[in-house]
Computed example of a mutant assay.
Amino acid sequence: MSILAKALRLMGTVWLCAAGLLIVSSHLVVLHLDGFWALVNLLNPWNVANMLTLDLTAAPGLLLHMAADQLTTTAGSSQNRPALVSPYPVH
């Protein structure tokens, strides 16, 4: 695995951990300040604003992981290819 892929994977993991801590802590603050039913309303699956916020918070970390995966698969497939490849079949 290349250094860039490792760095992207590390940054993605750090981002996802920070996003998870932020989401859990914000839910705990809502539970503490506004009560259980406010948390239930916040976690309602029809609460589109909350779901978009959660998705946008976690998206950069997931995209960094996807980029690292693409780099590792691209690097692995290009290493197994011969240096000179003819586009025409040889008879």
Rank of each mutant, 00 (worst) to 15 (best):
L84H: 13
T57D: 02
S77W: 10
V24D: 05
A58P: 00
S78K: 14
P87W: 07
T13F: 05
T73C: 05
H65C: 04
S77F: 05
N41A: 12
P45D: 06
L84F: 11
L4A: 13
S86R: 15
A67N: 10
W15G: 00
Y88D: 13
H27L: 09
G35W: 02
L71Q: 09
I3Y: 06
N80Q: 14
L33P: 00
L10G: 07
G61R: 06
L16H: 03
F36G: 03
A49C: 01
S25M: 10
A68Y: 00
H65E: 03
V30N: 04
A68G: 08
A67P: 04
V30K: 07
I3T: 11
P87Y: 04
W37T: 14
L39K: 04
R81G: 03
A38T: 05
L64D: 01
G12A: 03
A49D: 09
L22M: 12
G12Q: 00
S77K: 14
D69T: 12
T57M: 14
D55L: 15
M11S: 13
T74C: 08
T57V: 12
L64G: 02
A49K: 09
R9M: 13
V48D: 11
M66F: 13
G35L: 02
A7K: 15
Y88A: 15
L31R: 10
G12C: 01
S86M: 14
V30Q: 05
A68D: 03
C17F: 14
S25D: 07
A67L: 15
R9W: 07
R9G: 02
I3K: 14
A19T: 09
G61W: 02
N44T: 08
R9F: 08
K6T: 06
A38D: 04
G35R: 02
V40M: 10
L33I: 06
G61T: 04
T53C: 09
L16G: 00
I3S: 13
M11W: 04
T74W: 15
L84W: 09
L33A: 13
N80L: 15
V90L: 15
T72G: 00
T53K: 12
H32Q: 10
G61E: 03
V40Q: 11
N50A: 13
